[in-house]
Each structure stands twice: as C-alpha cells, then as structure tokens.
Design a protein around this nucleic acid. Sequence first.
DNA 1: ATGCGGACCTGTTAGC
DNA 2: TGCTAACAGGTCCGCA
Length: 271
Amino acid sequence: MPELPEVETTRRGIEPLVSGARVERLVVRERRLRWPIPKEVERELAGARMLGVRRRAKYLLLESERGTAIAHLGMSGSFSIVNAEAAPDAHDHYDVVFDTGKALRFTDPRKFGSLLWGGHEPLRHKLLAAIGPEPLSAEFSGAWLKERSFGRRQAVKPFLMMPAVVAGVGNIYASEALHRAGIHPLRAAGRIALRRYEALARAVRDVLGEAIEAGGTTLRDFADARGRPGYFAQRLNVYNRAGSACQCCGSEIRRCMIGQRSSYYCLRCQT
DNA sequence: ATGCGGACCTGTTAGC
DNA sequence: TGCTAACAGGTCCGCA
C-alpha cells in the first residue's frame, strides 16, 4: 500500500497526536507481524514522553525520551487516531495508548508491517543502516544513480526500487518517474547515460513531491490518520492505466511483469 | 558482489 | 452464482 508519499502523509497526520504526549502503555494484540514485536518496545514506551515522529525511507520513527520505536506499514498497514477505549477490529494489531485518552492504532490485514525497537540511535539499526539517500535530499542526484549503476545489468526499474539505491521509491512511483524521464523500465541500469539519470533523479523528486502535496495515492484503501484518501491517483500517467492512451503521445500504455511486479510504460515515450 | 525467486499473509477481483 | 487463480502499494533472506 504505502510508498514514501503515503508514509509521509501518515507521518504528518499522526505527528500532532504523538508529539509531546505521554504513553500510558502499548497494547499488543498480534505480536507476530513480519517480525515478532519485541517485548522491549512495550517496556520502554510505557510511561515515556513522546518527542516526535520522523521518517526514514518508508519507516516511521516514533521518538520517545527513552529511545525510538521503528514502525513499518508493509503492504497493507495504516495508522489511525482513535479513542483509547474504541473496540478493535480483527486486523488492529497494536495501540499506542496516550494519557490524552487517544491512541495510535495500527491496522494491517497482511501483517507485513513491523514494529521494532531502535534505541537511541535508530538510524544505526540494521534495517536502516544501509538505506540510500532520501530522494528529496540534495544527496540524491543523477550522478549518484550513475555511480551506483556502474556495471549493472539489472533492469532500471527494479534498480530504482532498491532501498540501497534510493529510499522510498516503490512500484507506483518507479513506473511514474521512468515515464516522466522517458526511460524504458527494462533498460539495463548500467547502460544509461548521466544526462538521462539526471532527468530520472529530477522526475523521482518531482513525482514524490507532487504526490506528498496531494496526500498520497489511494488506489483502493490508503487513508491518512484521519481516514481521508490521497488524491494523486488521478494524476498518475501510467500506473494501472494499461490499455489507455498516454497523456503525452496518445499511444497505448503497456503493462509487463518485471521481477514479479507489474510495470507500466509507454512504448513511444520511453526508450 | 549481483540478482533472482521465495517467503511472509489476507483480501479483492477477474475469469471460467 | 460459485469456485479458483491471479494479483495487490514491501523488502528481507538465502541461494546460485
């Protein structure tokens, strides 16, 4: 479900609730997410004051005075703000209950999400340590992509979706950025000129920035912390649009599978 | 080192 | 209408 813009939208939604609140307790109903939720998270968060919510790649960092909990939404996860006493549904796996009477509730039918303890240096956590630059930071550039792609035969689309290459680019925005940059998703990553990578870096930054402004993309069920959908779906140029006409040239948008992921592109615009 | 497929899990939809 | 298969926004891990 969520890529970087959806995670950022979630972060912005939950930050006002979380920031400055004191945790009463963490209620875990289903410990077995992608990894079992460590007992440490309950122990450390209970009674702690929350400092804020940050984001790194698609991870949400729930910072408390005692350390940071690292949350990931997986494919189908979402956070919502509820009254602490509201009855949970089948897939509501944990609540962070605050002394304000509100709770941060995590819902995730597929259980690919996770909640881990990152201590006082969460960015050193194994899952975060090797992640590449944030796409909206100055560190991320065409030169960086060119450097990382040297000698690679892998198709550029899965290359662009590797966390070590750039943080937070998932299946939707990889297709969208490649279309904007005019690059065919199957082109070998190591055979793309610097100029074209510069266009791609710009496209990634632009499309993610615009999607954040629109509150993310809701294809079926993404909702922010208040239950509102994102409005970027209507501005997607290729994703989920196989068979329709390309907005740029009018030719038919194609779909193919690359590494078991649906990929969308325009034969005419992307080479 | 690179790159691929499998794994995790449930829900929805397309097709017969 | 009902069953089945395919597919879904992620990404880590093990293996070749």
